[in-house]
Design a protein around this nucleic acid. Structure first.
Length: 812
DNA sequence: GATTAATGTG
């Protein structure tokens, strides 16, 4: 029977071989020489169940302890079945390891399945046992080290290569270059390259690609010239792909383009895609589009065009290309198309389309929970459209969230004012030993800045320091911003001084910070430096504009001059802020003048700003006129339009109009009123001697602290003691003990000459401050209060007396 | 060795 089993296996009749083995088991003990055949049958079928059963049987009869061949056979079976962990475990338990080949099998298996950590452990065991891997295994080991991102391991394997005579092997050295590239040690990659005796095109390409990925164009072009001079080897598709990826000037791009046409490489679809990507990067989407229409279009080129538009901020164009792709007869969008177009829809705030893509992904049968990138893209899209619940749900469903997925969910919380959740997720991440990268840190540093929480910020800074992330430019920039937002200029300056590499963002952050805290002249000094070293961009002047309102008209005119000088006066965002700034210093004519210009593209926000501009300058009826014109121009008013409009009416005493607009907003445009809208209405009621009505109205509904706060503020504005005290009772019942509450209250009493009460409030508040935990300084309410004004939406002069988060939307 | 994808600094 044993012989028969063997012969079945040899003639590849594995099923019969196993069947026979099963029959044999209850009758008699199989011979040792039978097992390799049985195992071979298991791995060739392949049948893991049968394999595991045999493994169990082998343990039971003790063969494994004395028969190396059977052990090796079992090991190979697991390798063949792709069960590398079982294979490795078995290997680890082996008392004698005779078969190097097995090691190479395991390394290959673990390496291709992405179990990099296990590869390195296996390698360490090999070193301990003085077993030398073959070249291919060593390549896998080097690749594993590069994926683990550990310099220590990288150095170890490099030393090993040198000590064991692999350093002249071109495959190995090429892998070393890639490894150093991946862990960010370009200097060491360059060194390996220089020491190579024999270089093939892969060696050249490896280094050129690395520099290209790091956007180090001078090095890329230098290497390319050296390669041309060496005449051997000849540059190939990969070389040109790298070269094209770091072209910054369209003229150079054009000459490479024509060279490629001459050498017939243009017909290569990768090259075609790279050329139009190059034009897209050089801000020549017009050329890119022409190339796109010329080349052989594959799904990849469609996806790349969507991505190019998206990356350059042309979200609408990205969406248009995606829609065109849908009409192509032979092409179906894939996960790349979705992942590319989702951020575009997210930026456009189109939740409906995001939902429909989500359902299309399900319909296409794509396993998005397995596809981390795609799932992260959907998660982020939902988050950007404020559907936090959907984002959370997707995150919880992901089987193996990547660092990027974690980063995305943290960022979703940041975007939606749930900073506390962001910090909790970060802690979970650290505790769960998820790899933290510099984007994670940038995101949580942002959370600290938004909270205005210096203590947490300092903690993260220490973390950054201990994990060696200090030298990352974006981390440094984020730290400066955090410190400046917390009003800690000194620490911001310290980070700034410690940074050896800076970019325009670094400088802009400093300017923005200085302007925000009122150090206008230091800000200006930094601006002068920017002018020398960089071309100031839109953020530079927007940062400057932060301060102009607080200084003077002449300062504003100076900044306006810079905007013209640097040709930034066609940018909608800049013009909007400029108009807003002129309005804020009271020059509504200039604001109107700029608004009326037709060389910049007005958007919804421009109209909102202009409505507010008239309102804050006492021209409420003009605000109403602009609103009418806005509708005539085909714009649909949004919640901010109504904040501008209602505050204009309230500010200018147009009470009846105000109520009419409120009605319009709720009933015609179906906009749910937020705390900002309610504040305007309460203020209007106050001006119309309607505080009692306001009180009744609020009392009858399920309103939360912010609304009551707005009412208290209206009482203060109207010196209404009677209602004021009712509101005070209600608020203290609700457990309100914030700084704003007490300051409003003491304000109200002092305006009514009730000094005893004022003293009492001061005493209570003073006491509370001494007791940590009693004051609401620790709750989320306070986190919001300290949050700095959003960057681009200062289009209303309305300063909220309280800024608790908006409660559930309420309709009056 | 390798064209297209998600998160992120002002």
């Amino acid at each position: 029977m044993n012989l028969l089993i063997k012969s079945f296996c040899q003639s590849r009749r594995y099923l019969q071989s196993l069947f026979l083995f099963k029959k044999l088991l209850p009758i008699s003990k199989p011979g040792i020489s039978t097992f390799p055949s049985v195992l071979k049958s298991c791995s060739s079928l392949p049948s893991l169940d049968a394999g595991l059963m045999n493994h169990g049987y082998l343990i039971k009869c003790g063969v494994l302890n004395y028969c190396i061949d059977v052990r090796n056979g079992l090991l190979l079976m697991y390798v063949e079945l792709g069960e590398f962990h079982n294979a490795y475990k078995l290997f680890d338990e082996m008392p004698v390891r005779s078969n190097n080949n097995v090691f190479d099998h395991i390394i290959h298996g673990l390496g291709t399945s992405g179990a990099y950590h296990d590869v390195v452990i296996t390698f360490e065991n090999m070193v301990k046992s003085s077993i030398i891997p073959n070249v291919h295994s060593l390549c896998h080991i080097i690749k594993a080290c590069s994926n683990l991102n550990s310099t220590k391991q990288a150095n170890f394997v490099h030393d090993y290569v040198n000590q064991n005579g692999f350093h002249n092997h071109v495959l190995i050295t090429n892998s070393l270059i890639s490894m150093y590239a991946k862990i960010g040690r370009l200097d060491l990659a360059q060194k390996v390259f220089q020491n190579m005796i024999q270089k093939d095109i892969v060696s050249w390409n490896s280094l050129i690609t690395v520099y290209a990925k790091n956007q180090n164009s001078p090095q890329v072009f230098n290497l390319f010239l050296s390669l041309k001079q060496a005449k051997n080897p000849l540059p190939n598709v990969i070389t040109f792909l790298a070269l094209l990826s770091c072209v910054k000037e369209v003229s150079i791009g054009k000459s490479i383009h024509s060279h490629l046409i001459r050498t017939n490489l243009y017909s290569n679809f990768q090259i075609g895609t790279a050329i139009f990507n190059m034009y897209a990067k050089c801000e020549r989407l017009d050329y890119a589009r022409i190339v796109f229409e010329q080349i052989n279009k594959t799904l990849v080129s469609w996806n790349a065009l969507i991505s190019a538009y998206k990356q350059k901020g042309y979200d609408k164009e990205a969406v248009d290309i995606y829609k065109r792709l849908l009409t192509e007869p032979d092409l179906k969008p894939d996960s790349f198309s979705f992942a590319n177009v989702l951020p575009a829809y997210a930026n456009l705030g189109n939740l409906k389309r995001i939902k429909s893509i989500h359902s299309m992904i399900i319909k296409h049968g794509l396993d998005m929970y397995q596809d981390v990138v795609l799932c992260t893209a959907i998660l982020d899209a939902y988050g950007k459209c404020s559907d936090v619940k959907a984002a959370e749900f997707l995150f919880s469903c992901m089987r193996d969230p990547s660092t990027a997925s974690w980063n995305a969910i943290i960022s979703v919380y940041n975007m939606n004012n749930k900073i506390k959740n962001a910090m909790v997720v970060f802690q979970e991440m650290v505790r769960g030993k998820v790899l933290v990268d510099c984007i994670t840190l940038v995101t949580v540093i942002q959370s600290c800045g938004q909270m205005g929480c210096l203590k947490k910020g300092n903690m993260i800074h220490k973390f950054v320091f201990s994990k060696g992330f200090c030298s990352y430019l974006i981390v440094g920039n984020a730290l400066i911003d955090m410190y400046m937002r917390c009003g800690c200029v000194k620490s911001g300056e310290m980070v700034f001084d410690s940074m050896c590499v800076k970019n325009i963002v670094t400088w802009n952050t400093m300017i923005y910070g200085y302007m925000k805290v009122g150090c206008f002249f230091t800000g200006l000094k930094f601006f002068n430096h920017v002018q020398l070293e960089y071309k100031p961009d839109s953020v530079t002047v927007i940062s400057l504009l932060q301060g102009s309102v607080a200084i003077s008209g002449s300062f504003l005119e100076m900044v306006h001059g810079y905007i013209l000088k640097f040709g930034l006066d066609y940018e909608t965002q800049i013009m909007n802020i400029l108009i807003d700034s002129y309005a804020k210093i009271g020059n509504v004519e200039k604001a109107q003048d700029l608004f009326a210009r037709n060389d910049f593209k007005r958007d919804q926000s421009s109209w909102n700003i202009m409505i507010a501009a008239y309102g804050m300058n006492g021209q409420g009826s003009e605000s109403c006129n602009i609103f009418t014109k806005m509708i005539e121009n085909g714009y649909v008013p949004d919640p901010i339009t109504f904040i501008s409009l209602l505050s204009a009416c309230s500010h200018c005493g147009l009470i009846e109009e105000g109520f009419k607009f409120f009605d319009l907003m709720v009933n015609k445009y179906k906009i749910q009123p937020t705390i900002e809208h309610l504040t305007c209405i309460i203020d209007m009621l106050g001006r119309a001697n309607g505080l009692k009505e306001a009180y009744e109205m609020i009392k009858s509904g399920n309103y939360q602290k912010p609304v009551w706060g707005a009412l208290l503020s209206a009482c203060r504005n109207n010196m209404d003691m009677e209602i004021g005290e009712l509101v005070r009772d209600k608020l203290s019942q609700m457990g309100c003990d914030s700084f704003e509450y007490y300051s409003l209250l003491s304000n109200l009493y002092s305006l009514n000459n009730k000094w005893d009460e004022v003293m009492e409030i001061r005493r209570v508040f003073g006491d509370m401050k001494k007791k940590p935990g009693l004051s609401s300084l620790n709750n989320e309410t306070n986190d919001n209060r300290k949050r700095t004004t959003p960057f681009f939406s200062e289009n209303t002069k309305w300063i909220l007396p309280f800024s608790w988060p908006a409660t559930t939307a309420i309709t009056i």
